[in-house]
Amino acid sequence: MTQTIATDRTLGERQSTILSTLAACMIPPQDGLPSASDPRIVKEVLALLAGHAEVVNNGLERLHGLATQVGDSAAETLPAEMLISLVATLRTECPAFVTLFESTVAACYYRDDRVLRALGLPDRAPFPVGNDVAPTDWSLLEPVRARTPFYRTV
């Protein structure tokens, strides 16, 4: 791992490959939904993770250590199920990395136009269109209206 130590705002090639493999394991493609390792999505993920080089380095170092223990091979070459089970161990050993990774992938994945469209959600920012909320039928309040005031008077 030492040869792939990241500089300040970029990740080394090998780190990018492992992170991309992890993203694919976390969210694989299915029924018109892209994988989180889709090039457009993973590019954003890597750009954001580059700002947290120390946490990423620590997490990947440990993942690499675990991979050599179980499979005697590099993490990026392990089958997806094995990588996912290593991440479960990493969750207790390097929680900062797993939390950062998951929340970054979720942030980039669930704002992608294709993902939002496939989920039937608007592929736009909330402003300026907003949302229509149907008017409420306030007859729902009838049982409450029937109560006498019950706040304490002083």
Binding site: M26, P28, Q30, I84, E102, S103, A106, Y110
Partner: peptide, 15 residues
């Protein structure tokens, strides 16, 4: 929603 689900262990990795 996804971040909360992941944090609470409600959203698994994989298929």
């Amino acid at each position: 929603a996804a971040q909360g689900g992941l944090a609470r262990g409600l959203l698994p990795w994989g298929t």
